[in-house]
Protein backbone atom coordinates (compact mmCIF):
# COMPACT_ATOMS: atom_id res chain seq x y z
CA UNK A 1 0.00 0.00 0.00
CA UNK A 2 1.42 3.39 -0.93
CA UNK A 3 1.51 5.97 1.82
CA UNK A 4 -1.20 8.63 1.67
CA UNK A 5 -0.49 12.34 1.37
CA UNK A 6 -0.98 15.25 3.74
CA UNK A 7 -4.62 15.95 2.86
CA UNK A 8 -5.74 12.34 3.08
CA UNK A 9 -4.03 11.75 6.42
CA UNK A 10 -5.51 15.00 7.75
CA UNK A 11 -8.99 13.86 6.71
CA UNK A 12 -8.50 10.45 8.35
CA UNK A 13 -7.49 12.12 11.60
CA UNK A 14 -10.40 14.57 11.52
CA UNK A 15 -12.82 11.75 10.66
CA UNK A 16 -11.45 9.81 13.64
CA UNK A 17 -12.29 12.70 15.98
CA UNK A 18 -15.79 13.05 14.54
CA UNK A 19 -16.44 9.31 14.77
CA UNK A 20 -15.33 9.30 18.40
CA UNK A 21 -17.63 12.26 19.13
CA UNK A 22 -20.56 10.52 17.45
CA UNK A 23 -20.06 7.60 19.84
CA UNK A 24 -19.04 9.40 23.03
CA UNK A 25 -21.08 12.61 22.63
CA UNK A 26 -19.03 14.28 25.34
CA UNK A 27 -18.07 17.46 23.48
CA UNK A 28 -21.14 18.62 21.56
CA UNK A 29 -23.64 17.76 24.28
CA UNK A 30 -22.22 20.15 26.91
CA UNK A 31 -21.63 22.82 24.27
CA UNK A 32 -25.23 22.67 23.05
CA UNK A 33 -26.65 22.42 26.56
CA UNK A 34 -24.71 25.48 27.66
CA UNK A 35 -25.64 27.49 24.56
CA UNK A 36 -29.36 26.69 24.75
CA UNK A 37 -29.54 27.50 28.46
CA UNK A 38 -27.69 30.81 28.09
CA UNK A 39 -29.77 31.84 25.06
CA UNK A 40 -32.97 31.08 26.93
CA UNK A 41 -31.93 33.02 30.05
CA UNK A 42 -30.65 35.99 28.04
CA UNK A 43 -33.90 36.14 26.06
CA UNK A 44 -35.58 37.30 29.26
CA UNK A 45 -32.92 39.96 29.82
CA UNK A 46 -33.21 41.57 26.38
CA UNK A 47 -34.94 44.98 26.33
CA UNK A 48 -37.82 45.28 23.91
CA UNK A 49 -37.01 47.15 20.72
CA UNK A 50 -38.71 50.52 20.30
CA UNK A 51 -38.04 53.38 17.94
CA UNK A 52 -35.55 54.94 20.33
CA UNK A 53 -33.32 51.95 21.14
CA UNK A 54 -33.17 49.83 17.96
CA UNK A 55 -29.42 50.36 17.68
CA UNK A 56 -28.81 49.38 21.29
CA UNK A 57 -30.95 46.25 20.96
CA UNK A 58 -29.07 45.21 17.80
CA UNK A 59 -25.75 45.43 19.67
CA UNK A 60 -27.13 43.57 22.67
CA UNK A 61 -28.55 40.83 20.44
CA UNK A 62 -25.24 40.44 18.61
CA UNK A 63 -23.35 40.50 21.91
CA UNK A 64 -25.56 37.79 23.43
CA UNK A 65 -25.08 35.55 20.44
CA UNK A 66 -21.31 35.85 20.25
CA UNK A 67 -20.69 35.61 23.99
CA UNK A 68 -22.67 32.37 23.95
CA UNK A 69 -20.65 31.03 21.00
CA UNK A 70 -17.40 32.09 22.70
CA UNK A 71 -17.97 30.27 25.98
CA UNK A 72 -19.68 27.23 24.44
CA UNK A 73 -16.76 27.00 22.01
CA UNK A 74 -14.23 27.12 24.84
CA UNK A 75 -16.01 24.18 26.47
CA UNK A 76 -15.48 22.25 23.25
CA UNK A 77 -11.88 23.34 22.74
CA UNK A 78 -11.09 22.25 26.28
CA UNK A 79 -11.89 18.70 25.21
CA UNK A 80 -9.83 18.80 22.00
CA UNK A 81 -7.00 16.70 23.42
CA UNK A 82 -8.96 14.74 26.05
CA UNK A 83 -9.62 12.06 23.46
CA UNK A 84 -5.86 11.69 23.00
CA UNK A 85 -5.16 11.58 26.73
CA UNK A 86 -7.61 8.85 27.71
CA UNK A 87 -5.35 5.86 26.95
CA UNK A 88 -2.12 7.64 26.14
CA UNK A 89 -3.07 7.90 22.46
CA UNK A 90 -1.23 11.22 22.23
CA UNK A 91 2.09 9.32 22.27
CA UNK A 92 0.87 7.11 19.43
CA UNK A 93 -0.30 10.16 17.52
CA UNK A 94 2.96 12.04 18.03
CA UNK A 95 4.88 9.12 16.57
CA UNK A 96 2.84 8.58 13.40
CA UNK A 97 4.64 9.61 10.21
CA UNK A 98 2.54 12.64 9.43
CA UNK A 99 3.51 16.29 9.30
CA UNK A 100 2.60 17.84 12.67
CA UNK A 101 0.72 20.61 10.87
CA UNK A 102 -1.69 17.88 9.71
CA UNK A 103 -2.46 17.25 13.39
CA UNK A 104 -3.30 20.94 13.80
CA UNK A 105 -5.45 21.07 10.68
CA UNK A 106 -7.31 17.87 11.61
CA UNK A 107 -8.00 19.09 15.15
CA UNK A 108 -9.06 22.49 13.80
CA UNK A 109 -11.39 20.82 11.28
CA UNK A 110 -13.09 18.73 13.93
CA UNK A 111 -13.39 21.77 16.21
CA UNK A 112 -14.82 23.73 13.28
CA UNK A 113 -17.41 21.00 12.74
CA UNK A 114 -18.45 21.25 16.41
CA UNK A 115 -18.72 25.06 16.22
CA UNK A 116 -20.75 24.89 13.00
CA UNK A 117 -23.18 22.41 14.57
CA UNK A 118 -23.43 24.70 17.62
CA UNK A 119 -24.22 27.68 15.40
CA UNK A 120 -26.73 25.72 13.32
CA UNK A 121 -28.66 25.23 16.54
CA UNK A 122 -27.92 28.57 18.20
CA UNK A 123 -28.59 30.93 15.27
CA UNK A 124 -32.16 29.77 14.55
CA UNK A 125 -32.83 29.58 18.30
CA UNK A 126 -31.52 33.12 18.81
CA UNK A 127 -33.48 34.36 15.78
CA UNK A 128 -36.58 32.92 17.37
CA UNK A 129 -35.95 34.11 20.92
CA UNK A 130 -34.52 37.53 20.03
CA UNK A 131 -36.73 38.12 16.96
CA UNK A 132 -33.83 38.85 14.60
CA UNK A 133 -34.75 40.91 11.58
CA UNK A 134 -32.01 40.16 9.07
CA UNK A 135 -34.13 40.68 5.96
CA UNK A 136 -31.99 39.54 3.06
CA UNK A 137 -28.73 39.66 5.02
CA UNK A 138 -28.58 35.98 6.03
CA UNK A 139 -25.94 35.29 3.38
CA UNK A 140 -23.81 38.15 4.71
CA UNK A 141 -24.25 36.82 8.26
CA UNK A 142 -23.06 33.38 7.13
CA UNK A 143 -19.93 35.01 5.61
CA UNK A 144 -19.20 36.90 8.84
CA UNK A 145 -19.83 33.78 10.93
CA UNK A 146 -17.45 31.78 8.69
CA UNK A 147 -14.67 34.34 9.16
CA UNK A 148 -15.20 34.48 12.93
CA UNK A 149 -15.24 30.68 13.17
CA UNK A 150 -11.96 30.35 11.30
CA UNK A 151 -10.08 32.65 13.66
CA UNK A 152 -11.85 31.29 16.73
CA UNK A 153 -11.03 27.69 15.87
CA UNK A 154 -7.40 28.47 14.95
CA UNK A 155 -6.78 30.20 18.29
CA UNK A 156 -8.79 27.65 20.29
CA UNK A 157 -7.01 24.65 18.77
CA UNK A 158 -3.53 26.14 19.15
CA UNK A 159 -4.04 27.14 22.78
CA UNK A 160 -5.83 23.87 23.57
CA UNK A 161 -2.66 22.05 22.47
CA UNK A 162 -0.55 24.33 24.66
CA UNK A 163 -2.85 23.93 27.66
CA UNK A 164 -3.04 20.14 27.17
CA UNK A 165 0.66 19.88 28.09
CA UNK A 166 -0.04 21.26 31.58
CA UNK A 167 -1.80 19.96 34.66
CA UNK A 168 -4.05 23.01 35.03
CA UNK A 169 -5.28 22.86 31.43
CA UNK A 170 -8.92 23.69 32.26
CA UNK A 171 -7.76 26.96 33.82
CA UNK A 172 -5.04 27.75 31.34
CA UNK A 173 -7.06 27.49 28.12
CA UNK A 174 -9.45 30.40 28.85
CA UNK A 175 -6.61 32.42 30.39
CA UNK A 176 -4.59 32.11 27.19
CA UNK A 177 -7.35 32.12 24.58
CA UNK A 178 -9.70 34.83 25.85
CA UNK A 179 -7.29 37.78 25.52
CA UNK A 180 -6.25 36.60 22.07
CA UNK A 181 -9.88 36.26 20.98
CA UNK A 182 -10.95 39.78 21.98
CA UNK A 183 -10.37 41.32 18.50
CA UNK A 184 -12.29 38.52 16.77
CA UNK A 185 -15.33 38.86 18.96
CA UNK A 186 -15.39 42.67 18.91
CA UNK A 187 -15.28 42.46 15.11
CA UNK A 188 -18.00 39.79 15.17
CA UNK A 189 -20.17 41.97 17.41
CA UNK A 190 -19.71 45.10 15.30
CA UNK A 191 -20.37 43.39 11.97
CA UNK A 192 -23.35 41.38 13.21
CA UNK A 193 -24.94 44.49 14.76
CA UNK A 194 -24.52 46.25 11.40
CA UNK A 195 -26.31 43.38 9.68
CA UNK A 196 -29.11 43.46 12.24
CA UNK A 197 -29.47 47.20 11.57
CA UNK A 198 -30.02 46.48 7.88
CA UNK A 199 -26.54 46.86 6.37
CA UNK A 200 -25.75 44.66 3.37
CA UNK A 201 -22.61 42.59 2.69
CA UNK A 202 -20.88 45.38 0.75
CA UNK A 203 -21.29 47.84 3.62
CA UNK A 204 -20.05 45.29 6.16
CA UNK A 205 -17.08 44.27 3.99
CA UNK A 206 -16.05 47.92 3.71
CA UNK A 207 -15.71 48.28 7.50
CA UNK A 208 -12.31 48.16 9.15
CA UNK A 209 -13.47 45.35 11.47
CA UNK A 210 -13.95 43.10 8.45
CA UNK A 211 -10.33 43.64 7.46
CA UNK A 212 -9.20 42.98 11.01
CA UNK A 213 -11.13 39.71 11.00
CA UNK A 214 -9.53 38.58 7.73
CA UNK A 215 -6.05 39.57 8.94
CA UNK A 216 -6.60 37.77 12.27
CA UNK A 217 -7.63 34.60 10.44
CA UNK A 218 -4.56 34.68 8.21
CA UNK A 219 -2.21 35.28 11.16
CA UNK A 220 -3.61 32.61 13.47
CA UNK A 221 -4.17 29.91 10.86
CA UNK A 222 -0.58 30.42 9.72
CA UNK A 223 0.68 30.47 13.32
CA UNK A 224 -1.20 27.28 14.09
CA UNK A 225 0.24 25.43 11.10
CA UNK A 226 3.79 26.64 11.78
CA UNK A 227 3.89 26.49 15.57
CA UNK A 228 1.92 23.33 16.33
CA UNK A 229 5.00 21.14 16.19
CA UNK A 230 6.83 23.33 18.73
CA UNK A 231 3.75 23.51 20.95
CA UNK A 232 3.41 19.71 21.07
CA UNK A 233 7.11 19.29 21.89
Amino acid sequence: MTEAGFVTKTMWLAAKDLRIELRARDTLAPMLGFAATVALVLAFALPEASSGNVGVVAYVQAGFMWVTVLFAGLIGFGRTFEVERAEGALDSLLLVPVDRSALFVSKALSNLAFIVVLEMVLLPLSALLFAYDLGGSWGALVAVVALVDLGFVAVGTLYAALAAQTRSRELLLPLLALPALVPVFIAALELTADLLLGAGFDAVAARGWFGILVAFDVVFVTAGVLLFDAVLD
Binding site: K16, I20, A86, E87, A89, D91, S92
Partner: peptide, 8 residues
Protein backbone atom coordinates in the same frame (compact mmCIF):
# COMPACT_ATOMS: atom_id res chain seq x y z
CA UNK B 1 -0.94 2.81 28.40
CA UNK B 2 -2.45 1.15 25.36
CA UNK B 3 -2.20 4.20 23.08
CA UNK B 4 -5.57 3.18 21.60
CA UNK B 5 -8.71 5.29 21.20
CA UNK B 6 -11.21 3.83 23.67
CA UNK B 7 -14.26 4.74 21.55
CA UNK B 8 -12.92 3.11 18.40
Amino acid sequence: ESGLYPNL
